[in-house]
Structures are given as C-alpha cells and as structure tokens.
Amino acid sequence: MIELVDIQKSFQNKLALDGVSFTIPKGKVFGLIGPNGAGKTTLIRILNQILSPSSGSVMVQGMPLTASHVRSFGYLPEERGLYREMTVKNHLIFLAKLRGLSGKEAQANVIHWLKKFGISDWENKRIDALSKGMAQKIQFIAAVVHGPEVIILDEPLSGFDPLNIQLILDEIKTFVQQDKTVVFSTHNMQSVDELCDEVALIHQGKLLANDKVADLRSKHRNGDYKIRFRGNAVAFANALWTGFEIIETKELSENYREAVIRKRADQSFNDVFTFLSGSLSLELIEEQIPSMQDVFVKLIAAHHHEE
C-alpha cells in the first residue's frame, strides 16, 4: 500500500500539485487520470523520487518512501528513450543491473522476457535497427525486467499499435494476478474501464476524485435506460407518461425501435418495466452506466463550472 499525504509541488512560481492525497492499494491496478498538464507526471516522478515534493510525504507500508523502495519499483516514463547504439540484450541487462540485479540474474530475466514477447531473435540487434513497435516492447521490458512489486506506467499505451496495446494490457492483468500493484497513468479511458480497480482524477494539480471505478461510474449515473421494443412509437411515448424523458429514438426496422430514456424524480427500474410492458413488446431494458470517459468529461466540466 502506497499512501500519498498532502503532496504539494511547485516549480518556480507555478503550483503543479496542490495538496494531493490518496492511497494506492496493493495488488490492484490504480489509474491516474487527468487532462494534459494536470500534474500526473509530476506525481509519478515524486513516486519515483526523481522529484521531491515541496511538502507532503509518500509512505510505503506505513514507512516513508526510500531509495530501496524505489529500486523495487518498475517505471515506464512517458518520455522514454533508449541508447540507440546498444544491442537489445546489453541495453536491458544494463538497466536491470541499475535496478540492483546481478549480472547473472539480469541475463536470465532478459532472456525470459525477450522469449515471452517473441523477440529472442532480436537480442543482438542494435536498438536503432528496431521498428517503433519493437522499441516500445523493449521499453516495457526495461520497466519490468527486474520483477518489481510496484509497476508505474506513465501513458504506457501512447503510440502503441492495437496489437501491442493488447499485449501490454494482458501483461498488466498478469501482474495483478501475481498480487503486484500497477499504477497506470493514461488518457485512454477505455483501458481504465477495462483494467483499473481504482482511480484518482487530477486536474490543475488538484485531486478531483478518488474512488473505485465501479463506484465512480455508479455515482455518476444519469438514470438513463436503453430500451429495445417492437410496437408503435406513439404508444411508446404515451406509455412513458410524464415520469420519463425520451433522450433519443432510433428505428431499427419497421415497428422495431431502440430508445434512450431518462427518468425524472424518483422513478425506478421497475417503473420502466411497469409503464411499458402493457403496451409494447419489450426486448431489452438496460440501465446506462456512464463510462469513465463520461465521468471524466463530467467531472472536469463541473470543475470548470464551479470556477
């Protein structure tokens, strides 16, 4: 468990982080989300002790963050590079040694990961001979080659092709199965929906939300339902009475429609069914839970509105 307590960071006169506090649970995928310039990368650099906070503290299992903690972290930065003139294998061994592995351990781990990613044949190739996708795989391996317990990935999917995205997502799932903690900063809300157990939303250096993904989405439900039915559109509108508002309707075929309705006042899911079942042939009633994308946009907009 990693705990960030009232982290503040300023650069010259600009406040990059303003009293951010949250807890990253062990063995989960924790999403760090926010628009560009929100302060995510600064926060991640503080977690890696690349930057020190102006005030506040980071605790790991109740102890202040130390260099040895950081050495057991894996880190894939957003701004990532490689030594272009080195070979794949030597490069990875070099980085693994910097993370505290012995030469033998580093060699064994590198061979394991290259094999796992199906790029063993490339181990003696120079980095500058690799394709972009291949180089990205190497960068990812470099972050995890020393078997870290905490893996911090800053925008790990940016620039990846769909195949590599799936590869990375699968690996992240595997880490969680191994009870490892993954801190995952991204703009890709679909991947947050798919992977993250919990998120912290940061905007303009402030923490706007910190909750489990399911709870966050649930909290921001609008009371929208998707309904698919066979029957007359007029009958459908009449049946809803005044308890629901029709947001949109779509004719799928003759007398076969799909609509999104939003409840008013204290209507419930049962009311929808009660109102419609007598006059229409219902095929689907589904509550519309907002995606993380919707939640993200909604929270940012609300923050701007408040300002």
């Binding site: 690349i50 972290f73 880190y75 930065p77 701004e79 990532r80 590079g81 490689l82 030594y83 993370r99």
Partner: peptide, 16 residues
C-alpha cells in the same frame, strides 16, 4: 544526447 533521446528519466528512476 541522453536528454535529447529522453533516456535520462529512465535512468533517474534507478540512480540519483
């Protein structure tokens, strides 16, 4: 060069 190819940050996660 390390600044230009952005490997500095990878290294700084491991070394002071």
């Amino acid at each position: 060069r390390e600044k230009a190819n952005r490997i500095s940050e990878v290294l700084l996660a491991s070394v002071k």
